[in-house]
């Protein structure tokens, strides 16, 4: 037996060796992320060439990061949901609903002297509650995530319009604006928040039972269930998590624009799913990285920034982004199909 095993071992090692070292590197998550860094640098190079110092100066870097922050926070949540084998199309609508709900609380007459932390609590609660509804109906109602969150996309946006009466609600709560628009060490609080959520997400995914369960549930739900993991409960947690992230994003948007509006966060689902996919997370679940997602977000917002600096239209931007998403998925599939030849 032992001789046989040695033979098998040697053969296993041989078959693992990759004829093409670049492909082999891209297959590991570290290698993929290195590839994304290269892509990001190339994009920056394009930016520097086409827009010169307008692209390269510090203020513009901050603009890119601020642009990235809102999308980024939600993308971290999306990474978890997609690794867990789901998808959430309702993020934009949840952001809108959370924003108008918290600005409504702030603008009600009775609540004139309300503490700004109440706004924070309301936004986070509304976001999490929407996620909870998504999660419960997906896990226990057996509704396909795509359909459930599509329904939530419509309903949450609709409720946001009803609450706000389709009006943009301007708010100015002293402590709130101060907190969210402050600089710390020359860097915007919003950017710090994105960094904080990313680090927390990384720890949660890589160092906790929660992260391990997420990977198990997305990688092979049947095996996870038979190993005694409560797949349904984990699914609910994942949607609550992304709902919570939407709450944070809503607060960031309210502070940035000093308004709550039922149009906030439109097409956010596109940007976040795209960032996650570009970041190398498999849409089939079970595999993905936070670092990849952060890089995906930065790549996307840099491209947006370069288009704006070069006075290109939003339509051209969309066209280009669509192409990038397709390219990213094609590349991912090539890598994935070579990976599973058993």
């Amino acid at each position: 037996m032992s001789q046989d095993s040695v033979r098998v071992e040697k053969e296993a090692l041989e078959t693992e060796r990759e004829p093409n070292p670049v492909l082999a590197l891209l297959r590991t998550s570290v290698g993929r992320n290195a590839g994304l860094v290269v892509a990001l640098l190339l994009i920056c190079l394009v930016g520097a060439i086409t827009a010169g110092s307008r692209f390269t100066d510090w203020d513009n870097a901050m603009t890119i990061l601020r642009l990235a922050a809102v999308v980024g926070v939600v993308s971290i949540g999306m990474t978890f949901v997609i690794i867990g084998g789901g998808i959430d199309l309702s993020v934009g609508a949840i952001v809108a609903l959370s924003s108008v709900w918290c600005t409504t609380v702030a603008t009600q007459e009775l609540a004139q002297d309300i503490h700004w932390l109440w706004m924070v609590a309301v936004a986070l609660l509304v976001g999490s509650a929407c996620g909870l509804i998504n999660g419960l109906l997906i896990a226990y109602g057996n509704i396909v995530p795509f359909i459930m969150t599509l329904a939530m996309l419509a309903s949450a946006r609709g409720l946001a319009e009803i609450i706000s009466d389709k009006k943009t609600q301007i708010v100015s709560v002293e402590g709130f604006d101060d907190f969210f628009n402050r600089d710390i060490l020359g860097i915007d609080v919003q950017v710090w928040l994105f960094a904080l959520v990313s680090v927390a997400g990384w720890i949660l995914l890589n160092r906790t039972t929660f992260g391990r369960r997420t990977v198990a549930v997305g990688g092979n739900p049947e095996a996870a269930r038979l190993a005694g993991i409560n797949v349904k409960r984990q699914t609910v947690y994942l949607y609550v998590l992304i709902g919570f992230c939407c709450g944070i994003a809503a607060l960031m948007l309210v502070a940035k624009t000093t308004t709550g509006s039922s149009t906030h966060g439109s097409l956010l689902e596109l940007d976040t799913i795209a960032a996650v996919v570009i970041g190398g997370t498999l849409l089939t679940g079970g595999r993905g990285t936070i670092v990849g997602t952060v890089l995906g977000v930065l790549i996307f917002s840099s491209i947006t920034n370069i288009f704006i600096l070069n006075n290109r239209s939003f339509s051209e931007q969309s066209l280009f982004k669509g192409a990038i998403i397709v390219a990213a998925v094609l590349l991912q599939q090539r890598l994935a199909s070579r990976n599973s030849t058993t």
Partner: peptide, 8 residues
């Protein structure tokens, strides 16, 4: 298909 996470 029921027992293992093959890529883990």
């Amino acid at each position: 298909s029921q027992g293992l996470l093959l890529d883990e």
